[in-house]
Amino acid sequence: MTSVDSHQRADAPQSDRQSVAQRLLDSSETLSYDPVTEVDWETPLDTSYHGASPEWSTLYGTSYWKEMTPERQRELTRQEAASVASTGIWFEMILQQMVLRDFYAKDPTDPAFQWALTEIADECRHSIMFARGAAKLRAPAYRPRRMVVELGRLFKTVAFGEAAYAAILVAEEVLDVMQRDWMRDERVAPFVRTVNNIHVVEESRHMKFAREETKERLEGAGRLRKQINALVVAIASYFIVTSMVNKKVYANAGLDTKRALREAAANQHHKSMLRSSCAGLMEFLNSAGLLTKASMWFYKRANLI
């Protein structure tokens, strides 16, 4: 990412990239939320509500789902929503470090620099919001497997350029589609709907920035570079998406974990939901030259294509 030339006049016309960043800054000033005051944290959890739209449950449509009582179904969606939130926190912490590293020692008068700090501030608030939301859903601290945590540690340290921003985009786009469903669903707990609405509104700006940065970084990139980064992004995407629902949610919802895992793995409905949520994303990756034969293997394994 190029910063503003230190000798450039302060009143010089902004580049397209700077103009996008300025529009995002203006939008952030106009429409942003404070989860501390916007979300109803005080009202006790009403267990007559789901934690997520039932259709997004990993077991929806299976024989196990049909055997479950409505109370058990609602508890499962609450645990799954909490797991998704916990995974979101994990990746948002990776995102913050990559963005902060990318803008280290660059021109602070550049609107892109200021937007990067604004995005990091948003992500800090989102992580706290997700943490409080998971606690209110009466869920434990779900974390990815140790191997995935360590791979994330490596990725946030070495990923740069289009690999970093495209991976950010994948995580945000998948969450965005499911949360748009949840925030409109009156079966979902009101405070969860508010959390999702805040995240959808503010993440839309983050996704715009990630798309612009990915495209800019790829300008003039050769075939080998695209092939390598396409694979890096696909591998990162695989581990992000497959970590969203922790296997411990089933036991915490009072289910037989082995049976639940078996039926979830064979659940074509859930796989279809994931694929449909990523149609636009895959189109963008393809147009950017980041959807290769090797990368598609990982996207198919993650049921994203």
Rank of each mutant, 00 (worst) to 15 (best):
residue 12 A to W: 05
residue 13 P to Q: 09
residue 16 D to N: 13
residue 16 D to R: 15
residue 18 Q to M: 11
residue 19 S to L: 15
residue 22 Q to N: 07
residue 23 R to C: 04
residue 28 S to P: 07
residue 31 L to T: 10
residue 36 V to M: 13
residue 38 E to N: 05
residue 43 T to I: 06
residue 58 T to Q: 08
residue 65 W to G: 09
residue 76 L to W: 14
residue 95 L to A: 12
residue 96 Q to A: 08
residue 99 V to H: 08
residue 104 Y to M: 09
residue 107 D to A: 12
residue 108 P to C: 03
residue 110 D to H: 13
residue 112 A to V: 11
residue 114 Q to V: 15
residue 116 A to E: 00
residue 118 T to R: 15
residue 122 D to G: 02
residue 123 E to K: 06
residue 125 R to Y: 00
residue 125 R to D: 11
residue 126 H to M: 07
residue 127 S to R: 01
residue 135 A to Q: 07
residue 135 A to D: 08
residue 136 K to R: 14
residue 138 R to Q: 15
residue 145 R to Y: 13
residue 148 V to M: 10
residue 152 G to H: 11
residue 152 G to A: 10
residue 161 G to L: 06
residue 163 A to W: 07
residue 167 A to R: 03
residue 173 E to A: 14
residue 178 M to F: 04
residue 182 W to E: 01
residue 186 E to V: 02
residue 188 V to L: 08
residue 189 A to R: 09
residue 190 P to S: 02
residue 194 T to G: 03
residue 194 T to C: 00
residue 195 V to W: 06
residue 199 H to T: 08
residue 221 A to E: 10
residue 227 Q to F: 02
residue 236 A to W: 01
residue 238 Y to E: 14
residue 241 V to L: 15
residue 242 T to G: 04
residue 242 T to N: 13
residue 243 S to Q: 12
residue 243 S to D: 05
residue 249 V to L: 08
residue 252 N to P: 01
residue 253 A to R: 10
residue 255 L to E: 04
residue 258 K to T: 07
residue 264 A to W: 00
residue 269 H to Q: 13
residue 273 M to Q: 14
residue 277 S to H: 00
residue 278 C to E: 03
residue 285 L to P: 09
